[in-house]
């Protein structure tokens, strides 16, 4: 009986936390824009060199635009978890390096596949070491 109460309490706590997170995510998620857009993407590599890409696309999200330009692989696009961008790897699970994404100078607060793009957006994707 005691364990049953604990299980119910923990189950409720888990459900409440999931709902709270979902609400936080929805409140902070930016809106997608339809139609043709031109965005710029600067990839900053581990040696601090940079490469600029001007992308004309009607994609609504950054992941789709990057896939269009073959800057990311289909496999990682389908998973929504990117380690290889522009042929360079940054894998947090291997060496704690990661890709930091900013839009118009500010860090994004969603994943690449969920990041909406608007005409004129300037993205910077930086290989950030541990």
């Amino acid at each position: 009986m005691k364990n049953k109460k604990t299980v119910i309490a923990l189950g409720l706590a888990l459900a409440i936390i999931i709902v709270a997170f979902a609400a936080l995510f929805i409140m902070n998620r930016p809106e997608a824009e339809k139609g043709n857009k031109t965005i710029s993407v600067t990839v900053v590599f581990s040696d601090k060199s940079e490469k600029d890409y001007s992308i004309k696309t009607d994609a609504q999200y950054l992941g789709d635009a990057l896939l269009q330009e073959k800057l990311v692989t289909e496999e990682e696009y389908s998973k929504g978890y990117y380690t290889v961008i522009a042929d360079q790897r940054a894998d947090y699970n291997l060496d704690k390096s990661w890709w930091c994404v900013t839009v118009n100078g500010e860090m994004t607060n969603v994943g690449i596949n969920q990041q909406p793009i608007s005409d004129g957006d300037e993205f910077e994707i930086t290989n950030t070491p541990a």
């Binding site: 888990l14 936080l24 902070n28 978890y81 607060n109 969603v110």
Partner: peptide, 18 residues
């Protein structure tokens, strides 16, 4: 701002972790 960005940005990974 940075704290909330960090939390929201890792939301799906936390779901996976959970």
């Amino acid at each position: 701002t940075l704290g909330v960005t960090y939390i929201v940005g890792g939301f799906w990974f936390d779901i996976l972790h959970c």
